[in-house]
Design a binder for these strands. Structure first.
Lengths: 185, 185
DNA sequence: CAGCAAAAGGAATCACTGCTCTGTTTATAG
DNA sequence: CTATAAACAGAGCAGTGATTCCTTTTGCTG
């Protein structure tokens, strides 16, 4: 049964979402046409539909890719066994922000307000990140600050909340800076 | 020279933007057609174009209306001569959030990432709000906490930054809650 | 290698939407 | 009250863009 091997198929899908993300970051989710993505990916109209059922499907996959990548970055820090202090963690998260991806991320927030599928992805990712930040801060309070777990439990929530808020605000700020200048990696 | 008196003209414009905001909050900026706004406002296609040059123009006016209203709410608190303590200020701002407007607000963030006109409005409003929060916190530190102005100057920036971030995060959180249930005022 | 199904290409389709245009109605100034 | 120019209604136009369909090419399996 000749068809693309799974690995190759995954590559094509990635190639398409990456092109899509570039287009989205430049022109927004809705003002990007399939033709734009066709041109950017070097593929053709029809072949995109061989990999994604519809544009909505592709937008969903792209949103997921961008947000998941962001959560993964955080996951790396969270896994470290010397938990960074909260301000340090925030600084690292902020320095890992890519402007183009920030733009698409903020676009997904806007889309999420009216599109249930995207909302699911956004809410889910934010919740997961919040939980990781929470754990990270908790670990720091206990391991580095040597707080009593019960005491740490009391302090951790507002700290995690504040970190998430500052991070989201920074994403917004980045996304609102000159959109047409910097592009490539 | 017979035409609508200025007050009446302003009323019509407001009637249109209010209808537009309701549509946007339900379906998003791009998925709302002029026909939708026509139906929602009880007016007709042609008459909308008598008041707004284009859809982009109308979107801009609606965005401005939503954001300006939000800034105005903050302005009221800032003008008070008994400056609220920062947490109190935040609580008040949050309680003044209207879900439908939060949705449109977040949509404007997404739009701002690729639309210079909207970006101008968004950046401008956020800057103005940040300045007001800054002044408000400063006033509280000096008048209520009786800090030395020089000392207050040092502390005010991170506090204002944190307040803005928590407020923006709350706007986002609100906008991501069930979009199709609650609507009316 | 050969055969074949899937993938790629790309022109054609079709629905949709922003905007314009032509009367018709209405609010205002005198 | 009347004249008038703007506001309004709503059908029509033109352009756009997602999706489909059919043909050609390609990568996989036996």
């Amino acid at each position: 049964m000749p068809r693309l091997t799974d690995a190759r198929k995954e590559l094509r899908r990635a190639q398409i979402t990456e092109a899509a993300v570039r287009c989205f970051s430049r022109n927004g989710l809705e003002r990007t046409s399939i033709a734009d993505i066709t041109a950017e990916s070097g593929l053709s109209n029809g072949s995109i539909y061989a990999h994604y059922r519809s544009k909505a499907d592709l937008v969903q996959a792209s949103a997921h890719a961008v947000l998941a990548k962001r959560a993964e970055t955080l996951g790396d820090y969270a896994a470290s066994d010397t938990p960074p202090d909260p301000d340090e963690l925030l600084a690292r998260l902020i320095s890992a922000i890519d402007p183009a991806e920030a733009r698409v991320g903020v676009q997904t927030w806007g889309e999420a307000t009216t599109n249930p599928a995207i909302r699911g992805i956004v809410v889910d990712t934010i919740d997961r990140m919040r939980a990781m930040v929470h754990d990270c801060v908790m670990a720091h309070l206990v391991k580095v600050e040597h707080l009593d777990p019960a005491e740490a439990q009391e302090q951790v929530i507002p700290i995690a909340e504040r970190l998430m808020a500052l991070y989201l605000a920074e994403l917004l700020r980045t996304s609102l800076q000159s959109s047409t200048e910097e592009t490539e990696s």
